[in-house]
Design a protein around this nucleic acid. Sequence first.
DNA 1: TGTATAGTGTGATCTACCTCACACCAAAGA
DNA 2: TCTTTGGTGTGAGGTAGATCACACTATACA
Lengths: 188, 188
Amino acid sequence: MHIKLREHIEKIMPLTDDEFAFVAKHFIYKKFKKHQFMVQQGEPVPYNYFLLSGLTKLVYTDPDTDKEYILAFAMEDWWDNDFQAYYTKTRASFSMVCLEDTQVLCLSLDDFNALRTGMPKIEHFFLEKVMWGFLAAQRRILSLMTSSAQERYEQLLAQHPSLAQRLPKTQLAAYLGVARETLSRPNV
Amino acid sequence: MHIKLREHIEKIMPLTDDEFAFVAKHFIYKKFKKHQFMVQQGEPVPYNYFLLSGLTKLVYTDPDTDKEYILAFAMEDWWDNDFQAYYTKTRASFSMVCLEDTQVLCLSLDDFNALRTGMPKIEHFFLEKVMWGFLAAQRRILSLMTSSAQERYEQLLAQHPSLAQRLPKTQLAAYLGVARETLSRPNV
DNA sequence: TGTATAGTGTGATCTACCTCACACCAAAGA
DNA sequence: TCTTTGGTGTGAGGTAGATCACACTATACA
């Protein structure tokens, strides 16, 4: 079951068996059902999550309007979390919700820090991960500023066709920051 | 002159004199005049930049409309760049332009990699930096989705009053993704 | 097997914001 | 000193897209 984690890490940084054993023992396995909340807005965030299977969303719910804004989706082989709350041991600003049954490997902050100090190589891996996450976020900011709703929808369909198939339009709209109805309107 | 870099790094990770000497020798000093392009859209990006003083913008210019979209500002004690182009040795998608006379320390990609491998501790520093950059980007995405132009303007004034004073409204508007005129309209 | 519940399309308003256009003022450079 | 350039406010008109409302279909559940 941890084999997926190993493959995932070794895409960036090869590990000896001993090294991976050291990494693996810091993770614990959990499974969640569709609709379950892995992280709840307003609650502490004890773990960081690496998805083995399934599909999750990271979502901010406006307390006044109850409108949902989706910051990220995650599926197999992705990390997902309210990283800020996790990393600063504060309460979650977002919820992380299962859109399908989901299996994860969990990493507590203490274990994360133990990994970082006990095995400097792992910092290389996470630096790489976070850097690409940052660049993706920057592209999304640019896309929000430069592109129309329709264009952003088409970009999403082109870049993540699998996501678009697994998710209802309501969820895609909440990710794109547009009204659900807009995605059905005649294309200009 | 490198003292600012040392202070900057040591906010996150203390260094011995030897360690810092090793770090410092990978950087070279440069200065630029207001209006100079440190990075040019379409050109290679040989360096990463740590600002000692001054003010820069990272900007995407739409080739068709010539409209500017500002991804980031940077001032003293910040890093700024088209990181993707830098890191992948591809051509810049953005330009980096001086809005004031600016002094920087430059780090080539080879030197960056030499630092990372020669001194694993430095990965810790960059991981920390990039993580906070990622979280800031995520907050900006959320703000673009949830908040009106006026609200985003007020958030900016509240969070970065110094920036707002040093910059014309045209630049702030290009950062917020709104028309310049909107920032002058009666506040709702 | 029937009844909720989720997902989708479509029409009719409404509005925040863009665009264009122009006037005014301040700072910069010849 | 004059002239250019950069920055700002304000009006009028246009539009992408939000919002509200409803009908239709498919899936889940008792």
